[in-house]
């Protein structure tokens, strides 16, 4: 499997730097963003297998960021990693399309496992979309 590309989004810079360092030592390609706006800039420039997103951030919060990320790419795998989310926040995030919800502090092994699952799922979705497009062209052309 190719190197996993991950984006960590959290306004706690110290936290994202530590987590990024530990993930990089496990051969992952990790970028960080301190806000939803910065995350959107990075998402527009690079393909990520998984985005690990905090819910409570200044300005554009996690739910709004999640909505924008999935609006741009509905197949994007987003894992929410947050402090104490309320039940309505958790429900809203899962309804929007977050693939997993973890509470801080989370163990790195669990995060790595989720990122790897996300990578496989995203590759499967990509394959499915390709097959659908080919099928559509075939149907249209009558092959």
């Amino acid at each position: 499997m190719a190197q996993e590309r991950v984006l960590l989004v959290d306004d706690e810079k110290e936290f994202t730097e530590l987590l990024a360092e530990r993930m990089r030592s496990r051969e992952m390609d990790v970028d960080t963003a301190e806000s939803g706006a910065e995350a959107m800039v990075k998402v527009c420039k690079k393909y990520y297998d998984a985005i690990i997103l905090d819910l409570a951030m200044p300005g554009m919060d996690g739910i709004e960021t999640l909505g924008q990320i999935l609006g741009k790419n509905p197949d994007q795998q987003v894992i929410l990693l947050t402090g104490h989310a309320t039940v309505p926040q958790s429900v809203a995030a899962m309804k929007l399309g977050a693939v997993e919800f973890l509470e801080k502090p989370a163990k790195i092994d669990k995060l790595i496992e989720l990122v790897r699952t996300a990578q496989v799922k995203k590759a499967d979705l990509f394959q499915k979309r390709m097959e659908e497009s080919i099928e559509k062209v075939k149907t249209k052309r009558g092959w």
């Binding site: 936290f15 104490h84 801080k104």
Partner: peptide, 21 residues
């Protein structure tokens, strides 16, 4: 306050993890 303290604990937890690594 509990959210902020949880952030502190999460950073210490990751620092401990880094030490373990």
């Amino acid at each position: 306050v509990s959210h902020e303290l949880n952030n502190v604990i999460s950073i210490i937890d990751q620092t401990g993890g880094l030490l373990d690594d």
